[in-house]
Design a protein around this nucleic acid. Structure first.
Lengths: 200, 200, 200, 200
DNA sequence: TATGAATGAGGGTTCATTCAT
DNA sequence: CATGAATGAACCCTCATTCAT
């Protein structure tokens, strides 16, 4: 990578980091391109050399964050000796719930507007070369498991939506229950869902 | 109600109907107050006589629609002779999924931005005198049932979030599956969740 | 005065008192007719039955306040046994400076915009039947004095402008000196001005 | 100075000149930003590139005008052979009264609202690099004089306020006397004030 | 590639005034 | 006399986007 390319990448990252900070702080609607470029220390026109508009940069940030989040969860899982599929999935769910509880702005950011769709898309398909996608990880977990599933994608769909939706409500609003209270219920439900999709 | 009051109510409804149409067509962010008043045929200042801002009118529309939707579902349920609690709940879920499938803009509108929170709030608490809230209906259904539940509110929470989240994805994006395909899975999961909260 | 007339006067006074309070608190530009009528507890249309607009009511308030202020000063003077003309004038000046120091919003109000002109006009001509004007008092003071003046109106003009202008700066901004420091200088200058207009 | 910088200065001056004309013609309250930019031939947004708001541009205009006015007066004084302090000060006073008599809109503009405070501030402190401040000139005049003064700043304060206040009334309203009639009285009073502050 | 001055449409909001009741 | 709902022009200001440098 030449010096110019390195410089380009630096600018791009600077813009993404700055945008992420502003989006999670002020919200995307209240963040202007001016805010971003000023904080990033580049000229206004430069923004348009890298991104189409505010929503383009948002989507790329979300994809990146989704990848990071699940990679970290899986990496942590690997360091444990949990082998049973259900336990492994629940470990990941809990890990992510903990992570998002500690980083509420990130959760806000992921869930607001139509970002949840972007997030899921990033989660299940490979967006960038640098990033891993959870679909692969999930597939691997399925393969490594002794159980056989019918419609594993639908199973994952139900689980992701359930966890995402209830988790958001609990973490952000503490309503109707806290994450701490939510977790055991969620665990039971997830185990039931898995059972529901298990081929005997 | 005097002539003036009647006129006021007419204006208010005109504004709400117009706003709903525009919000579901263009989205709330792309809808300006100017658009609303122009279409409603009132002066700009009149809008501010009735609503604080765009988000005020949105919340009131959502509350109203939520009430309407669930009232219709319950009303339809009454006309059937379904008596078992699980069946009744699933009837309502299916009714609403059908309703929203037929009216995608309404679903878009309910789910975008932070409206889902408003929707749930409207669902579970009485907002306006004219409107019924589902919390009452649900309580009644629980009371009429022969089963006893532990934490029925949490049970409802899980179900609402699961149905809302997966339903949105399926209805709007047909992804990863269509509503038609989703329904049986959802039914099984809901029955499992109910079991999970049943006191033997 | 009939019951209706009494009621009218009450409304009028209520509007004037409320306006005065708002003008001195928020400033005239930031005070709307809505603010006034709401605080006064009358309907919007009613305002226009009594006043032409915001500036009409302001002028009438200023006239009234000017009259009150100087009447109080003269009344206080009468209770003393000061007889020498210079001393009497300086007594009044000091009295008014003290009064305005204690009531800065009133001073702000009098001095802002073009109100100073209105104030002087109210001071020197009789505006309302109820109010006295300082021109009469001044004339009386001149008549009662043993000294003869050439151009007493010009003399008064110089003194009023000097006291008003320096007093405003000192009271409101404490700049470049405080009222306390200003007073002795002002006294000397006023005595010199009087000398300057004295016919030997 | 590059082509861009030259262009920027041109825009800034165009906006200031246009604003000055409108402010003195219609008054600042009746002048909208739209009026200014339209007349100046720039886009609305451009205004906000150079000034914070209407009051920002007003203050900068006033500062500039104050500087110009006094610089011209002092420059004219230098061309005379007047040496005595009192005479020099009175020369400046008369010069400025003449100038403002010939340019009433400027006087209106300086005296309205709270601009008089801004004017004095600009007069006594250096605001811009381009501009001179009268405080320096005054100090120089004091230094060059053979007389010693106690509290020369207070002396100047009294004179400025007296001249400003009476001058405004006389020039704009011809009330209670014309500038022509005012001048000799003012001259006497100023000489007395100077005497009052002279250390024997 | 990078800049940042300039654009100008369009946003939300206010408010003096009117007039039917 | 009194009301207050309705008006709609006018306001200030933001900001995504362009383009000459």
């Amino acid at each position: 990578m030449g010096k110019i390319d390195a410089n380009k990448k630096k600018k791009l990252e600077s813009l993404m980091n700055t945008s992420f900070e502003l989006f999670t702080t002020k919200g995307i609607n209240k963040t202007s391109i001016s805010d971003i470029v000023e904080k990033a220390g580049v000229a206004k026109g430069t923004f348009y050399l890298y991104f189409k508009d505010k929503y383009d940069i948002r989507n790329r940030i979300i994809s990146h964050k989704a990848s990071q989040l699940f990679a970290a969860a899986y990496s942590a899982l690997q360091k444990t000796d949990i082998v049973i599929f259900e336990d492994r999935l629940i470990y990941i769910v809990n890990y992510i719930l903990d992570e998002l509880t500690a980083n509420k702005p990130l959760l806000q950011f992921i869930y607001k507007d139509l970002s949840w769709g972007i997030f899921k898309k990033a989660l299940l398909t490979q967006v960038s070369n640098d990033d891993v996608d959870f679909a692969q990880i999930y597939q691997k977990m399925i393969d490594e498991s002794t159980i056989t599933f019918k419609d594993p994608e639908i199973m994952l769909f139900l689980i992701i939506e359930l966890v995402g939706s209830t988790g958001y409500s609990s973490i952000i609003y503490n309503d109707p229950i806290s994450v701490r209270e939510l977790k055991p219920h969620l665990e039971t439900t997830i185990r039931n869902i898995i059972k529901q999709f298990t081929v005997e």
